[in-house]
Design a protein around this nucleic acid. Sequence first.
RNA 1: GUGGCCAUAGUGAAAUGGUUAUCACGCAGGUUUGUGGUACCUGCAGUACGGGUUCGAUCCCCGUUGGCCACCCCA
Length: 471
Amino acid sequence: MPQSKKKPMLKKAAAPAKKVAPKKSAAPASKAAPKKEEVKIPAKKQFQLVRGMKDVLPRDQWYWKAMYDKSQQLAIDYGFDRIETPVLEEAALFMRSVGKQSDIVEKEMYVFEDRDQEKVALRPEATASVVRAYLQHGMWNQPQPVKLWYWGPMFRHERPQSGRQRQFTQVGFEIIGDASPVIDAQIIQMAYLFYTELKIPVNVQINSIGMPEDRTRYKMELVQFYRSHRGEICETCKVRLMKNPMRVLDCKEPQCQPIKTAAPQIVDYLSNESRDHFMKVLEYLDELNVPYFLDHTLVRGLDYYTKTVFEIVTTDGEQGSQTALCGGGRYDLLVEEMGGKPVPACGTAPGLERALIQLRERQIDVPGAPAPQVYVAQLGDLSRRKAMLLFTRLRAEGILADQDFCKNSLKSQLESANGKKIPFAMVIGQKEVQEGTVIIRDMDSGVQETVDFNKAPQILKRKLGLDSAAV
RNA sequence: GUGGCCAUAGUGAAAUGGUUAUCACGCAGGUUUGUGGUACCUGCAGUACGGGUUCGAUCCCCGUUGGCCACCCCA
């Protein structure tokens, strides 16, 4: 018997298909216009999330709100305007900006043809979209720099882990139209404040990768240096040397560490201009009391970065897993590369799922749901009507009341009130309806008082210390 | 993308190649539809999916799906 319990619903769904036709020849007969691939729906299927996707459940909503509020506050304080760009863009946009060779585009991007055979992509990041919008809407005609912030889902097809999903959320701050190191410093400060003001301890790691010319000279030196140590380095590094030399600096193989430390550093190959810029950024950060660690091995995976690059990482190195909470940097060439005039820019993008993990693990308090001040209980249909009316009046008075008018037993209603630690309960039964009264019960002491129905809200206010006369 | 570990009610755990898969929390209801916190009773809910081995699989094997870890990379 018990087994049959789940089936009815499923049966219903399957029923039409069942008897419709002898079916063998049914398929060819249909018009077969755009030739759809069949989506098979197994009869007993338990639907699960698509890999790498996540539900945001009620228990996390207040964390999300705290992060959103913090982002918005920073945006307002620093004079950013909100922008929202679509999740879907022309695939070529990211190939151009993020880089065709980059891992993000090459092996992680969701690219597909839509029904018009248009090549589209789910955005793997949003800087490219923001720059696209800057150009498309002629924002260079506005006072420069243009400061924009966004919040939304990004998509990368990677192997999921904790703190790494295929759909994840980023908030971003972009400043387009100014080359000054002040901008870099402010962007970094904002990212830093985002975490520290949420009580998440973090470290800022910073480096400058200069302009392409600087890098070309550096890469030659680096390759030459590594060649002279060819015997000592790991296999992957040998490959990296050919494909993308600067990646050797990311290597975690123990055998490569000594070579890495001894390797030439990019800072020594910067042009005077790049070097001055970097020094200025550091000076501003000193002045702003934003602590940072210079990390000459920090190179980032997006092709568009120039000069300043930085990452914000967790301070607890518990597991090596997903310590990078936020990345960012300057991208002075991107706007031009995307078809605009040469316009310098700089930005950052905190990853919110990773911040969320920190908030949870550190059990950081964030503002939660406002607590109900009174619970309205009723017995029977007649009193339920009065109780509903009372609830409405309480609400009009600005008192947050809780209730379960769908419940019948007083016991379970008080149980519910107790469970939520609500300080007062109001009880209406037959007798009270008759008398035009309502019982106010102090849930802590159990002391009860019968008061006039119409005066109940005011009396409760007094008990709650909200008496307007007292103000 | 590569490699490894894993999958039992909503949650956290336990158990077994053979009757009805156990416990706690949770949720619903009850202990004379008028009183919560403690107590007691009842109920709800599960072996991810598909295949194989077997007389018999939740347990062993394979595949799928999903999670986790490391790498790659990144947020």
